[in-house]
């Protein structure tokens, strides 16, 4: 079989969970997933539905309890940590940025899995860090101390760190968390551009339904430990399905330029605050 036809990710009947003080907690139960190389999949799902757990299983840092996982045609168990770090990069929800480093030095940490010399960087590292900074739109930040970065800048630097790993698969866990609207849109545009330029396969966890529909080739919904389509077709999120998953009323509207948008119904209007005394005008 030609390499192009091997799916980037293949999950069959994957179960995973955690053992804690309160006993066994099963989070994923029978997840099937196929992602082709170069595809951009967005995962939706309520808090605690297992989105992060699924990313951790795919990244190889949480061993599954059952099921089969293949990355690029090879069983996950056959990958060493080192091999994985050269093919899979993760942008976690939170990452500490060590004080005292400049941005370029932090991005260079992404070169650790590719290190060839006992001490110092080689020409490949320089090239890869420069390209990662450029592709993540973080070139102008290169010389800045990481301490001084804003939230949006931090996210781009962490993306550059992940790109410096030169991965084939990029896993993003709520990359738009803490970003304002314009930075959210900027990041989404950046990701769409990137995965073409770098031929990346991407799985991203998002919460914003419209952002998800705008970014993804395919939107999937995770709930009750299982993964399924989020609606009709690949990118059309079904408001009824979303309502039952998130437990809120979702309204659908068509914008004047013909785009379909989803919005949660505002409880303020439906009377939740009606009985409150009028706000103190002071």
């Amino acid at each position: 079989m030609a390499a192009d036809h091997v799916p980037a990710i293949r999950l069959r009947g994957v179960a995973a969970g955690y053992r804690g003080a309160a006993g066994d907690r099963s989070v994923l139960d029978g997840v099937d997933l196929d992602v082709s190389a170069g595809e951009l999949v967005v995962l939706l799902g309520p808090n605690g539905s297992g989105k992060t757990t699924l990313l951790r299983v795919v990244a190889g840092v949480l061993p599954p309890r059952a099921g089969q996982i293949e990355l690029f045609g090879r069983a996950l168990a056959g990958w060493s940590r080192h091999d994985l770090a050269r093919s899979v990069a993760v942008l976690p929800q939170t990452t500490e940025l060590p004080d005292g480093f400049r941005v370029s030095e932090v991005v260079n940490l992404g070169r650790i899995p590719h290190a060839t010399r006992a001490f110092g960087a080689d020409a490949d590292d320089e090239r890869a860090v420069a390209a990662a900074l450029r592709d993540a739109d973080a070139e102008e930040l290169a010389a800045r101390p990481v301490r001084e970065l804003s939230g949006g800048e931090r996210q781009r630097v962490l993306l550059a760190l992940a790109l410096a790993q030169e991965p084939r698969l990029l896993l993003l866990d709520e990359p738009t968390l803490h970003l304002d609207l314009s930075h959210q849109l900027g990041l989404v545009q950046l990701l769409r551009r990137l995965r073409v330029a770098r031929r990346l396969t991407v799985i991203a966890v998002l919460h914003d339904l419209n952002l998800a529909a705008g970014l993804a080739d395919r939107v999937l919904l995770l709930r009750d430990g299982r993964l399924g389509p989020a609606g009709r077709g690949d990118r059309v999120i079904d408001p009824e399905l979303a309502r039952s998953a998130f437990g809120v009323t979702i309204e659908e509207a068509i914008t004047p330029d013909g785009r379909r948008v989803l919005a949660p119904a505002m409880p303020v209007r439906t009377g939740l605050l009606q009985d409150l005394p009028p706000a103190d005008p002071s």
Binding site: A59, V61, R81, H82, L84, A85, R86, V88, A89, V90, P92, T94, T95, E96, L97, P98, F101, V106, L109, G110, I112, P113, A115, Q165
Partner: peptide
């Protein structure tokens, strides 16, 4: 290098191999 990776936190260090 591994010590430097640990400065990013344990999770990120694991993702770096």
């Amino acid at each position: 290098r591994r010590l430097n990776a640990l400065l990013l936190g344990e999770q990120a260090a694991a993702h770096l191999g």
